[in-house]
Amino acid sequence: MNFARKPILLTGFAGCAYAFLYFPIAVLIVYSFNRDGVGGFPPRHLTFDWYRVLFADSAMWSAVENSAIVALAAVVISILIGFPAAYALDRYAFPGKAAFQRLILLPLIVPGVITGISLLMLVVSGGFHLSLTTVILGHATALTAVATTEIFAGFAKLDRSFEEASADLGANGLQTLWRIVLPLMRTSLLGTALLVFTLSMDEIAVTFFLIGRENTLPLEIWSRLRRGATPAMNAISTIIFVFSVVAIFISQRLITGGEAGPAPTPEITPTPIITGATQ
């Protein structure tokens, strides 16, 4: 099979696939600068007015603040739960391990609606009110599945000989964890934190059912979209897009220590649960 030859057809197809992936994003960005609003071809009259409208919009900014609070809390909780869960799945055999793994990864594949309503029932049965705290609970529960998968993948790549050496040199379990395992897992943990943060900033399905009076950013955008498209929505979407891309580059820098190298690739597909393999 001659792989050196450039297949024109396949390359052309790949070009079309990239166009499909990026066309909507390009449309969003272009029309955020269009004076005459959303739609209308070709776009004319370049303007920054929609950004000005957006920056004066205090409801939007308090939603951004709420989302950031929720996302930070979700990152902390999902790593605090996901790290020991991944560690246990990687290192120990215990009764009910298979069920434990299935259950913790379930929110990855079960529709967000179901996670949302079941937690809503729990909150209501417990007599609690809906607030940002319940949203944090929902995000943490749903995203612990993501954190566990990511950290588990990190453990799988870990070279165990460092830990053995540390134990041989007389370190106890806690010392080895703190001085060997955690530093070695830094990349994986950073990548996980970033992924969970991004996913939380974008979460709607679970949030939808657990939201109190204070809106998160996606729900604020959502409630406005239902009233109709405005270029200010394009503007905020553009900002979110730029923010995401910058976050990827920063994380790449952080993780590779400034050298060019592979970016953090999210282990987005929960292969362990789909193939049913633990290792």
Binding site: L21, Y22, I25, L28, T198, M201, D202, I204, P218, I221, W222, L225, S237, I240, F241, S244, V245, A247, I248, P266, I268
Partner: peptide, 8 residues
């Protein structure tokens, strides 16, 4: 594109 908001 995976990192770009679903809603967006």
């Amino acid at each position: 594109p995976l990192w770009v908001s679903y809603l967006v």
